[in-house]
């Protein structure tokens, strides 16, 4: 039997989360995020402006022998059905509203905004799940609302107590780098603060400063290919009965059965070193209940691939060992990003 999901520790509680504008909340202090637009000290966003939707190549190219010359589906040796043409399938996959689940190059999920207007990254408050007990934890999506691609987005949450005092200001960068205009990406924040003490959260999002703070280099020159075709093959719920032993994974001998999500990626862009895929799971309310980054495997060894060449495809396997995350992910819908 497929196990039933149990309540996650990420209980969704209403928090007075004030989403402040970047200009008001960001850009203060050494090593702090800088404003994307406006402030004099802000570096210009990297990469060219490209607000077009990154659609996949036409399905008639990807599955050419499934369609005839008119774009109709070949349903038999001498039969075709024209209810859906390849072009219509492509258009429907790309979606036409922010709420639609879109299948795009390097992205599968909702909340892509084709007409970003804020001019700065914006935390999508309605997607944020915050822990009710234990250490304060939040997971959610932040969207690039600028007209250009960003080299990652840093999210900061200012946690306030009932008396207005600042308890902590956890900060984290999305695991997805090379964030395209209009694209939502996940984030995960934790703070050593009891969740019960937090009464107000003030969110801010900005572009991390290349080379500031941690001494890292700009990622622009090594940005991974986002021109990837993502798919999932199967998943196994946490505590699933079947023992899995794949070429790239085997279940622990202790009998534990973590949640698994197995899929594949085809790199239609430039060769990418240390390729990974990022997955975020949305629950029925549209909130992010888990975020995980998994390496793309070398198809021969099953080990993390050193590079995924242009035109090459390979598998990925997401393993959620945390039972709470695994149980939460089971009934949830996975969003996918690649390559990260």
């Amino acid at each position: 039997m497929r196990p039933r999901a149990t309540p996650t520790r990420l209980l969704l509680v209403p928090v007075v989360a004030a989403l402040c504008a970047v200009a008001a909340c960001g850009g203060a202090g050494d090593g702090a995020p800088v404003e994307v637009a406006g402030g004099q000290s802000a570096p210009a966003p990297s990469v060219v402006e490209d607000p077009t939707l990154p659609t996949l190549p036409p399905v008639e190219e990807r599955a050419d022998d499934l369609f005839d010359e008119q774009g109709c589906t070949q349903t038999g040796p001498d039969a075709a059905a024209c209810g859906n043409t390849g072009a219509e399938i492509d258009a429907a996959a790309a979606g036409d509203s922010t709420e639609d689940w879109r299948t795009l190059a390097g992205f599968v999920g909702p909340h892509w905004n084709e007409q970003p207007a804020a001019g700065a990254p914006v935390v999508l408050e309605q997607t944020v799940a915050i822990s009710a007990t234990g250490a304060w934890t939040a997971r959610g999506l932040v969207r690039n609302e600028t007209s250009g691609q960003l080299d990652g987005i840093e999210v900061t949450a200012q946690l306030l107590a009932a008396d207005g005092s600042v308890l902590a200001s956890p900060r984290a960068t999305s695991p997805v780098v090379a964030v395209r205009s209009g694209e939502p990406v996940p984030f995960e924040l934790t703070a050593e603060v009891p969740a019960e003490q937090v009464t107000t959260v003030q969110w801010s999002a900005a572009v991390p400063v290349p080379g500031v703070g941690d001494g890292s280099e700009s990622v622009a020159s090594t940005a991974p290919s986002r021109d990837a075709e993502l798919t999932t093959f199967w998943s196994r719920d946490h505590s699933g009965a079947d023992r899995i032993e794949l070429y790239l994974y085997r279940d622990p001998d202790d009998g534990s059965r973590p949640y698994l999500l197995f899929g594949s990626v085809l790199n239609r862009g430039a060769a990418t070193a240390s390729p990974t895929v990022v997955v975020a799971w949305l629950d029925g309310d549209g909130r992010v209940v888990a975020v995980h980054e998994a390496p793309v495997a070398d198809p021969r060894t099953g080990l993390p691939a050193e590079v995924l060449d242009s035109g090459a495809g390979s598998d990925f396997l997401v393993v959620l060992e945390d039972p709470a995350e695994g149980f939460a992910a089971g009934p949830a819908s996975p969003m996918l990003w690649g390559l990260a």
């Binding site: 599955a63 999932t232 085809l266 035109g311």
Partner: peptide, 19 residues
């Protein structure tokens, strides 16, 4: 169970890898 999902994400890359 929830099985075989996936579009043609499997590359047809004959000869790319030394198989």
């Amino acid at each position: 169970r929830r099985l075989v999902v996936g579009l043609l994400a499997v590359a047809v890359v004959v000869g790319v890898l030394p198989v």
